[in-house]
């Protein structure tokens, strides 16, 4: 079955971009959604909350810093206290900070790895006991083409984190598969989000438009493209898919153009 009727989904980075689109998509498929957001980023999570509610589903906003273990543990505890279980956990929160490698100090490295890689692990670790007790669940993470599949200059830390997610997903899938828990990632290509529109730290509007012209499908992606793929991975239709990284990149990695 494709529907997510009355499933409980926790999504980090839910206030904007891919996370927000996936929260809306899950709600339209019938899920109740716990929206983890980090308010200093300035994104308006209340709009996402309103959209989930408008779909007739329950929305719960939890202020979360995925860079801090107590904060993520509190997120999982709040979700369990409200709903009693967690069926789907999507570790999506991430930052991208342009930093030439000759200037990449420990602080920059640790900040990006702490959010983009360890932040994924913090969420998975926090929800695993509940999924084990429930006899199954879906762990999902947003990787990237940058890192595991292609280079991104001045983003060595980001690339290492995103490649790390792919390895984490593989090994965790093997370990928790016997518990009925599947673990998968999506590696988005170039998607128009607040992150990629940031011309200081990412491609900016001009950069993504230029990139779109060189991709096989001749366009850049939308957050909704990724949300639809997450819907598949979260559904029963993906019951036997695990340890996999699904490329949603418009064929970008086929020609590396």
């Amino acid at each position: 079955m494709f529907a997510l009727t009355d499933k409980i989904a926790v999504i980090t980075g839910a206030a904007s971009g891919i996370g927000a689109a996936t929260a809306r998509r899950f709600a339209h498929a019938g899920a109740h959604v716990v929206l983890a957001a980090y308010s200093p980023d300035g994104h308006d999570v209340d709009r996402v909350r309103a959209d989930v509610a408008a779909a007739g589903r329950q929305a719960m906003v939890v202020e979360t810093d995925v860079g801090q273990t107590p904060s993520v543990d509190a997120l999982a505890a709040a979700a369990l206290a409200r709903f009693g279980r967690i069926d789907i956990a999507l570790a999506n929160a991430a930052i991208a900070r342009r930093k030439p490698s000759l200037e990449l100090d420990d602080r920059s490295w640790e900040q990006t790895l702490g959010i983009d890689l360890q932040g994924v692990w913090r969420l998975f670790r926090a929800v695993l006991p509940a999924m084990r007790d429930a006899g199954g669940g879906r762990l999902l993470a947003t990787a990237s083409t940058a890192g595991p599949f292609e280079a991104w200059e001045a983003h060595v830390h980001y690339s290492a984190a995103k490649a790390g997610i792919v390895g984490m997903v593989r090994s965790l899938a093997a370990e928790v598969g016997p518990l009925g828990i599947t673990v998968n990632a999506i590696a988005p290509g170039i998607i128009e989000t607040p992150q990629t529109l940031d011309s200081v730290n990412s491609l900016g509007a001009g950069g993504i438009a230029e990139t779109g012209r060189t991709q096989p499908v001749r366009r850049i992606g939308k957050p909704e493209d990724i949300a639809a793929a997450y819907h598949f991975l979260a559904s029963d239709d993906a019951s036997f898919v695990t340890g996999h990284t699904l490329l949603v990149d418009g064929g970008r990695m086929l020609i590396r153009g």
């Binding site: 997903v169 593989r170 899938a173 093997a174 598969g177 599947t182 290509g189 096989p216 499908v217 992606g221 939308k222 909704e224 493209d225 990724i226 639809a228 793929a229 819907h231 598949f232 036997f240 898919v241 695990t242 340890g243 996999h244 699904l246 490329l247 949603v248 990149d249 418009g250 064929g251 990695m253 086929l254």
Partner: peptide, 20 residues
């Protein structure tokens, strides 16, 4: 219609065999 931006992909449906 949900497959909008996926092309050229080999989607494994293997219960984690190739990941393991």
């Amino acid at each position: 219609d949900d497959c909008t931006f996926v092309s050229g992909h080999l989607l494994m449906v293997d219960g984690g065999w190739t990941a393991y």
